[in-house]
Amino acid sequence: MAPDTATQIKMYRQMALIREFELAAMDLFKRGQIKGAVHPSIGQEASAVGVCMALDHDDLIVGTHRSHGHNLAKGASPERMMAEILGKDTGYCKGRGGSMHIAAFDTGSLGALGVVGAGNPLAVGAALAFQMRGERRVAVPFTGDAGTNTGSWHESLNMASVWNLPVVFVLEDNKYGVSTHIRDSTNIDDLSIRAQSYGIPGVLVNGFDVLAVYEAATEAVARARAGKGPTLLVAEAYRFEGHYAGEPEVYRERSEVAEHRKHDPLTHFRRVLVDTGVASSEELDDVDSAAKDEISAAIEFAKASPDPDPSTAMDYIYA
């Protein structure tokens, strides 16, 4: 069953915000205003929003190097996120984390980790705490398809299953680990069957379709919250951009990317909203331009913010 009108509009708004944020971050990176790297999640907005909209404020997410979208979807402020990726003192992590490590504890984002596969164990531990304290909260770690070949990813599914923990393991299958296609690193077509090894449900959804992701996530979250244990949720999508902004993409044909871009999750959802009468094109245009404005304001805020004081370089090492 589709969520109510307000929820659907909010989903679209969140997806538009992520798209604008990522485009702006890529642009700033190419202009040399962001150092390090930016890993855009363009093409994967539906899985970030579909999953996070199924969560409560008190539920927790754990992200990856590609987690701008997850953080925005969980409710993080674009201003403080943009300030973080520009290395500013007003950023969520006071400029200590940068693009790969945005954590927003006030929204339930426990942190984004730059080591592929490292997030699952943290979610297992958080969920264990929830279970031990009798809290009806759920922990959701995001991992990309390539992360499913790491040991900790598997260990975590097993441990969460053995302990019946409230975890929804989200696997965002964007088809590439840097340059390596998942078919060259994994000998199965359907990654959700990995759940069978651990005796938990594995669900495969179209990761371009926010409503499909939301429906599957809602079910998995309800199951976890009811004490029925973890689920593996695989959202199959595609990484429209390179591994990082400006990456040359010598390993795939332009035509392959163009083919997948036909399934752009934003275009698709816009069509659904108009076709089902939830919103008019004009209303959605307004949402798009509001998202643009919000990101412009975020960039202005970030650029006007001070750098961290060099005298604070040794802060936040020990509590």
Partner: peptide
């Protein structure tokens, strides 16, 4: 984690 989160985590 403490440093990366700017002191949010302990």
């Amino acid at each position: 984690l403490r440093l990366m989160t700017g002191g949010q985590a302990s």
